[in-house]
């Protein structure tokens, strides 16, 4: 077990190194330089550009730039090119904004998709299953931004509550109840939107796993023992069907960063996704690279956690 952990940590660190190299190369080999973002701007005189290049080591060869960049990153000295703020500081603030969105979305996804998927599998081919199936296809297929607009129109015209941003402007002096309600409304829509795709995909997956397991011989054995249906489904089948989801549980970590670019920009939610989008627009390389690095760390941590969980959960794996 210990040797497995050691090996896997070393492996993950090597992977992380390559990720950092590749992302650095992608950004720097691509045509265009940050100093050329706005060549018509009169403030960008050749001298300013030159000073800028020197300050951020852009005149050095690539590998030196690479070392400078990651040295700064690990010592926490990386600053955004756009506003000279510390990148880590910026990411942390935005992360705190994204967190409630992520938590509500994840909780919604995992609490809704399991009951739906299991019921679909048990009532396979019946009306419940077929409507759940069709609904989940619909949710998988609907473009997120279009769905967002439909929902916004619906909520705004029917409930007359504003939903854009994290809170309604100028609610500082009103009662706590009102503020809480306001926050909830603002939080609800984007997190529901973020969760829909996940619910659809995950419930389909739960269903197919349950069906797969339901056809196994040991389910027949359990029924031959005279167990009631519920115990067959929820003990023998579910316990086996759950194994692959342990892997997925580790993989929700990276969702903290990746998934929400479109939703956050529609709802003007000042979270990580929106920051990444803005950084890409401004070619703010340190921010892009740092976001990328952080998300790679999250992915690797997620897979690591799921590996460990899998070993604990499946008696067939022994190290």
């Amino acid at each position: 077990m210990l040797s497995f952990i050691g090996r896997s940590v070393v492996q993950k660190i090597i992977t992380l190194f390559f990720v950092s190299v590749v992302s650095f190369l992608i950004i720097h080999i691509a045509p265009g330089e940050p100093s050329q973002v706005d060549p018509m701007n009169p403030k960008f005189t050749p001298e300013v550009v030159e000073r800028f290049r020197e300050e951020f080591h852009l005149d050095k060869p690539l590998h030196v730039q690479y070392i400078y960049f990651y040295q700064n990153l690990f010592t926490g000295k990386t600053v955004s090119w756009k506003d000279n703020q510390s990148v880590l500081q910026k990411i942390w603030e935005r992360f705190l904004n994204s967190l409630p969105l992520f938590i509500v979305g994840t909780v919604l996804t995992w609490t809704l998709s399991f009951p739906v998927g299991i019921r679909s599998a048990i009532y396979r081919g019946r009306l419940y299953d077929r409507s759940a199936t069709f609904l989940s296809y619909l949710l998988i297929s609907i473009p997120g931004f279009f769905f967002a607009y439909v929902l916004i129109i619906f909520v705004v015209t029917h409930f007359h509550v504003p939903v854009i941003g994290m809170e309604t402007f100028g609610t500082g002096n009103t009662s706590t109840v009102f503020v809480v309600m306001d926050r909830t409304w603002h939080l609800l829509l984007p997190s529901v939107l973020g969760a829909t795709g996940g619910i659809a995909v995950l419930s389909r997956y739960v269903r197919s796993q349950m069906l797969e397991v339901g056809g196994q011989d040991y389910i027949r054995t359990a029924r031959a023992k005279g167990l009631p249906q519920e115990q067959v489904h929820y003990k023998h089948a579910l316990r086996n069907a759950l194994l692959p989801f342990i892997t997925m549980f580790g993989l929700i970590l990276p969702g903290l960063i990746g998934g929400s670019v479109i939703i956050e920009s529609i709802f003007s939610w000042p979270g990580m996704g929106r920051m990444a989008y803005e950084a890409i627009l401004a070619r703010d390389y340190p921010v892009i690279l740092t976001v990328n690095f952080v998300s790679a760390v999250l992915v690797l941590a997620g897979t690591f956690i799921s590996d460990i969980l899998y070993i604990i959960a499946d008696p067939r794996i022994r190290l």
């Binding site: 054995t221 359990a222 031959a224 005279g226 249906q229 023998h236 316990r239 086996n240």
Partner: peptide, 29 residues
């Protein structure tokens, strides 16, 4: 009906299957 049948299965009539490997649930002792 289902309930009465369950009280027969395993209790009065039991069955031994062909494939002992797949007929035992792998995640329970």
């Amino acid at each position: 009906d289902d309930n009465n049948m369950q009280s027969i299965r395993g209790n009065h009539i039991a069955m031994v299957f062909q494939e002992p490997l797949t007929s035992l649930n792998p995640v329970f002792t």
